[in-house]
Amino acid sequence: MLIQTEVGRAEVIANQLAALPGVLSAEYVTGPYDVVVRIGADSLEEMTASVVPAVQQVTGITRTLTCPIANGAHP
Rank of each mutant, 00 (worst) to 15 (best):
A10W: 04
V58C: 12
A10Q: 08
V52Y: 00
S25T: 05
A26C: 05
V35F: 08
S43N: 13
I3L: 07
T59M: 14
Q57P: 04
V55F: 05
P75K: 12
V52D: 03
M47I: 05
D42Y: 04
T62D: 12
G60Y: 09
T66L: 02
R63C: 13
H74E: 12
P75R: 11
E11D: 13
Y33F: 14
V36N: 00
E6G: 04
L17F: 01
I39P: 07
L20V: 00
I61T: 13
T30M: 11
V55G: 03
R38C: 12
V51A: 01
I69S: 07
V12I: 13
L24N: 00
L2A: 13
V37P: 06
V23Y: 01
R38T: 15
L24E: 06
V23S: 01
I3V: 14
P68I: 03
M47A: 09
V7W: 11
V12Q: 15
V29R: 04
I61C: 11
S50H: 12
L17S: 08
A49K: 09
L44V: 02
T62M: 07
Q57L: 15
A19K: 14
A26V: 03
N71D: 13
L2Y: 04
Y28A: 12
S50F: 13
V58K: 06
I69K: 11
P21Y: 01
E11M: 13
Q57S: 14
I13W: 06
V12G: 13
T5Y: 05
T30S: 14
V7H: 07
L65S: 12
L20P: 08
P75Y: 11
G60Q: 03
T48K: 08
L44N: 02
E45A: 11
V29E: 05
T59R: 13
S43I: 04
M1E: 10
T66H: 05
S25C: 03
G60V: 01
G60W: 02
V37E: 03
L24K: 10
V52P: 09
H74D: 01
D34L: 09
V12R: 09
L17E: 00
V51K: 03
L24C: 05
N15H: 14
A26F: 08
V7G: 08
A26K: 02
E45T: 12
R9M: 07
V55A: 06
P32R: 06
V23I: 07
T66P: 01
L17T: 06
V37S: 10
S43D: 12
A54H: 01
I13Q: 00
T62R: 15
P21G: 04
A19R: 14
I3R: 06
A18W: 05
G22Y: 06
A41Y: 07
T48E: 06
V23F: 02
V35L: 11
T64F: 10
E11L: 06
V58M: 08
A49H: 06
A49E: 14
T64C: 12
T66W: 03
V12C: 02
G60S: 07
A73F: 15
A41C: 08
A70E: 04
P53F: 01
L65G: 04
R9C: 11
S43M: 10
Y28H: 15
R63W: 13
P75D: 14
V51G: 05
A49C: 10
D42R: 14
S43Y: 07
L20K: 03
T66K: 00
I61W: 09
E45Q: 14
Q16E: 15
L17Y: 02
V29N: 02
V55H: 00
G8W: 03
L65Q: 15
T64R: 08
V52R: 00
